[in-house]
Design a binder for these strands. Structure first.
Length: 322
DNA sequence: TTGTGTTTTATTGCCTCC
DNA sequence: GGAGGCAATAAAACACAA
């Protein structure tokens, strides 16, 4: 390795070098310490027997055994033939450096020299320590930033998940309500179809049931609005599943001689009051449930409109024309 | 005691600034 | 071109479980 200015500085700073490229061992700290060629070389910094926590280094440390087992010459000789070992800084040195770093994590040359003097390290060591410290600080900072982002992400994701759940629940509700709505529509349409079919399929002779009071077959459309004199027609048709319902047309239609008295299934058994009560009972609800069929006249009901919304009189419709 | 993972110290190469 | 910062890396020191 060519020794550039950096390498020379490194040698100066550390006070000893690893084995050179040629294999020859260069200075050791002990040697340099004896001659003290550099102002900040100090055995305290380079030969530390304690770790950061103040405890002795483990027996694996070369320096722990050195000078402790009474075989110092041998160890000393071995020491000079060993490649340099890294030694950790002492706790008070690190504390000093930490405080300095907190004050300012950049190191100006003057400050570096002063710090090195203060704690007995080489300026290069101080510079390296600051460099590594900045790297650690950067890593920690990145970790913190990551945690903040992670928390933010988790929070947003939780909100998103809740919204998705809420959306799904609303979707289910919408589907449920849509089903119910279409079912009601179908029921309504089905009943209308039944009504229509009932009227269409009614045999011609059964129309005799729709006669006026004079016994003549009425040419008036059955489903006329405001047919106040014949309200029971619709009620019969609508209740097509009633016991009296036969072949699509209520039997009363066949029996009643007067359309205006279709509700009088058996007049002999029903008083005028009872008939009125029956009308009051059924007609309002029927008119509410099936407004499109037409006006189901009742003394208590307001005049309704036909399916198109047009006034009844403006929309004459003759089912029999089909 | 040993293997293994982590931390710390130090080096190297590249880059920017002056 | 020298000084210094930074990223990547090496290697020693250290911690700890088995």
């Amino acid at each position: 390795m060519a020794l550039g200015t950096r390498s020379l500085f490194s040698m100066e700073g550390r006070g000893l070098m690893y084995t050179s490229a040629t294999g020859s061992s260069l200075n050791t700290n002990g040697l340099l310490h004896n001659h003290m060629p550099f102002p900040f070389l100090d055995s305290r910094s380079m030969v530390s027997f304690k770790d950061v926590s103040g405890r002795m280094n483990s027996e694996r440390s070369f320096f722990r055994s050195f000078g402790q087992d009474g075989n110092e010459d041998e160890d000393f000789d071995e020491y000079f033939h060993q490649p340099e070992k890294k030694r950790r800084l002492k706790a008070d040195q690190i504390e000093f450096l930490e405080k300095s770093f907190e004050a300012d994590n950049k190191l100006e040359p003057e400050r570096k020299v002063q710090l090195a003097k203060d704690i007995g390290l080489q300026p290069r060591q101080v510079a390296i320590w600051f460099q590594n410290r900045r790297a650690r600080w950067k890593n920690k900072s990145l970790e913190k930033d990551y945690e903040v982002l992670q928390d933010s992400y988790n929070s947003l994701k939780a909100k998103y998940d809740n919204l998705v759940k809420e959306k799904d629940q609303l979707k289910v509700q919408v589907l449920d309500l849509t089903d119910k709505l279409s079912l009601k529509e179908k029921e309504r349409e089905g009943l209308e179809v039944v009504n229509t079919q009932t009227l269409f399929e009614a045999p011609q002779q059964q129309r005799v049931g729709i006669q006026d009071s004079k016994g003549e077959v009425s040419n008036e459309p059955i489903l006329t609005c405001k047919q106040e004199d014949n309200p029971s027609v619709k009620s019969d048709l609508l209740y097509s599943d009633s016991p009296n319902y036969t072949d699509g047309v209520h039997s009363s239609l066949l029996e009643a001689g007067d359309s205006s008295h279709l509700f009088d299934m058996d007049q002999s058994d029903m008083s005028q009051d009872e008939e009125e009560n029956l009308r009051r009972l059924f007609l309002p609800s029927l008119a509410y449930m099936f407004p499109r069929i037409g006006d189901i006249s009742s003394p208590d009901l307001p005049a309704s409109t036909c399916s198109s919304g047009l006034p009844i009189e403006e929309e004459p419709y003759d089912f029999w024309a089909y």
